[in-house]
Design a protein around this nucleic acid. Structure first.
Lengths: 189, 189
DNA sequence: GGTGCCATGTAACGAGTTACATGATTGG
DNA sequence: CCAATCATGTAACTCGTTACATGGCACC
């Protein structure tokens, strides 16, 4: 269900084509939800069948026609009703942690290397988010209400990446300590 | 695929029944991966068809017979091969953030209330994790290698919950600031 | 002339969810 | 007597992923 509402959310501002929505799921929205274009087209068809959105084909010159989807009154009602309901915290699905839990079957170096790699990836994401913060939210008092709410989600991203990096570093340090003790057990006194 | 490997991971130590595995996915493993018993039974059947695990029915008195699944050599090979491959960071799917991004359509109170609720849930999880840390990992030097790796995943949980709570508090404070400015716009000079 | 963007879709599959079903034993 | 635990499964469904398919335009 959540994907449907994520799409409706985007349509609140103005109509979008399936293509537009796909782009947003690749970019800004993509921080907290991912979807492929196939999922989006399928979901849009379903939403239109339920009359939560309606669509209109817009002819274009020099490029393919596009079908613009807009929120209906029913769709907006449903969105607001959903907004008022409590949300369950979403579960984490971290493949890296499954691996780490049997990391003792591999070498310390292998695990440390993988953690370094993840640290790097999260550093890059963090840099991106920090840049967005700098360019769009320097002076919050000048920012519109809708954008301020987006800022809260950006802050979540910044928190998440910062914390993930800190954990990577902690884990790497612990692994290095333990690894030393193991590869030279004679030194353990 | 990840579910299959998560199951194999559990079988490294000793054989488990489908029921046992389900319990673990409800408990400790459940922090970073969730699965229902249906998923697990289905996956076990598939793993057995591929000869990554083998099973044996163990008759019991006073309770239903159980089928114990054990890792085969092939299964262990596959698990190690998987362990050596790099993992992609998993995406976040946070329904709360979808809601928050259109939070301006609801009242500040509603959003603050929901954030408070989530803060509470994460506080409780954190308390649980901290207790596990206290009871099992007080003295790390006395802990076996396999358990030390589990400790790293527990640390991830502690990091995650701590950070989530911090973000909730930050967001609540910001919302309260903005809400004040809006409900009394005359004060805005 | 090839790559990449715009724009939409079908088909097949794999993963995850929800509901239903069975049946004995233990404990309040 | 009712509920919970142990133990396994089927069926139907939705959600998510991957591959394949089309076709014009712009840019280098």
């Amino acid at each position: 269900m959540a994907l449907a509402y994520a799409i409706l959310t985007l349509l609140v501002e103005h109509p979008h084509s399936g293509y537009d929505i796909t782009k947003k799921f690749d970019g800004s929205v993509g921080f907290f939800w991912k979807a492929t274009h196939q999922q989006i087209y399928r979901e849009l068809a379903k939403l239109e069948a339920q009359s939560w959105v309606c669509s209109e084909v817009v002819p274009q010159e020099g490029r393919p026609d596009k079908r613009l989807y807009a929120l209906t009154d029913l769709g907006k009602q449903q969105l607001l009703a959903w907004l008022a309901k409590p949300t369950e915290p979403m579960m984490i699905k971290e493949e890296l942690l499954i691996k780490l839990s049997i990391g003792y079957l591999a070498s310390t170096e292998q695990m440390v290397h993988e953690l370094e790699r993840h640290r790097q990836i999260h550093l890059e994401k963090l840099a991106l988010y920090r840049q967005l913060e700098q360019t769009h939210f320097q002076d919050l008092s000048a920012v519109s209400m809708p954008l301020r709410y987006s800022y809260l989600t950006l802050r979540r991203g910044i928190h998440y990446e910062t914390d993930y990096i800190a954990w990577c570093e902690e884990a790497i340090e612990l692994l290095n300590q333990w690894g030393d003790g193991y590869s030279a057990p004679a030194c353990e006194l």
